[in-house]
Deep mutational scan, measured.
Amino acid sequence: AEKTGIVNVSSSLNAREGASTSSKVIGSLSGNTKVTIVGEEGAFYKIEYKGSHGYVAKEYIKDIKDE
């Protein structure tokens, strides 16, 4: 099942092309942005936001229960 997560940073969080800190940054998400978690790979979540996919470090995403 898809989960919703909240970007848990004070400034912004980089979204990357792949599940690695050396992957190209494809965008950034500001704190408290809601994202859909579609998968996980190592220390990263694969997320969907406004129709695009990217990878973000798990430690900066807070899971919330689907309402």
Results as ranks from 00 to 15, higher is better:
S28R: 11
V35P: 05
S11E: 12
V56C: 04
R16P: 04
I6A: 02
S12Y: 14
E48T: 10
S11P: 10
T21G: 08
E40C: 08
K34G: 04
E2C: 15
T21P: 13
I64Y: 09
V56Y: 00
N8F: 10
I26C: 09
K62F: 08
H53A: 07
I47N: 05
V38H: 03
S30V: 13
E48Y: 12
R16G: 04
F44T: 01
K34S: 07
S28E: 12
D63N: 09
Y49P: 00
I61K: 00
N32Y: 11
G27I: 11
G27P: 01
S23M: 06
Y60P: 01
T33N: 04
I6M: 07
V35D: 01
V38G: 00
G39Q: 03
D66Q: 12
T21Q: 11
E67V: 14
N14W: 14
G31L: 09
Y45I: 03
V9S: 12
I47D: 01
K3Q: 07
E41Q: 08
K62A: 11
G39V: 02
G5P: 02
L29V: 09
Y55K: 00
G18F: 15
E17V: 06
V7D: 00
K34V: 13
A57H: 08
A19D: 03
D63V: 15
E40I: 06
F44A: 00
K65G: 09
D63R: 09
G39A: 07
E17G: 05
I26E: 04
I61P: 02
I61L: 07
E40N: 03
E67T: 13
R16A: 04
H53E: 06
I47A: 01
G31K: 13
V38Y: 06
F44K: 00
K3H: 08
S11C: 15
L29D: 02
G27E: 03
E41R: 05
T4R: 07
A15D: 04
K65C: 12
A43G: 12
A43M: 11
Y45G: 01
A43N: 12
T4S: 10
A43R: 08
A1E: 09
E67S: 12
G5C: 08
K62Q: 09
I26M: 07
K50S: 07
G27Y: 14
E59K: 12
S12M: 11
A19M: 05
K50G: 13
E17I: 06
T36M: 10
V7R: 01
G54N: 01
I26L: 10
T36G: 03
Y49A: 00
V56G: 00
I64G: 06
K24Y: 05
S52Q: 11
G51H: 05
D66T: 14
K3L: 09
Y55N: 00
A15Y: 15
D66I: 14
K34M: 12
K46W: 05
K34L: 12
H53K: 05
S23Q: 03
K65F: 12
E48K: 14
E2N: 15
I47F: 02
E2Y: 15
V38P: 00
G54K: 01
S20N: 11
I64V: 12
G18T: 13
E17K: 06
I6Y: 12
F44I: 01
V35S: 00
K46N: 01
K34Y: 09
E40F: 04
E40P: 00
S30G: 08
D66C: 14
K3C: 13
G54D: 00
I64K: 03
G18Q: 14
K3F: 09
S22P: 03
T21A: 13
L13D: 02
I37W: 00
D63Y: 13
T4P: 04
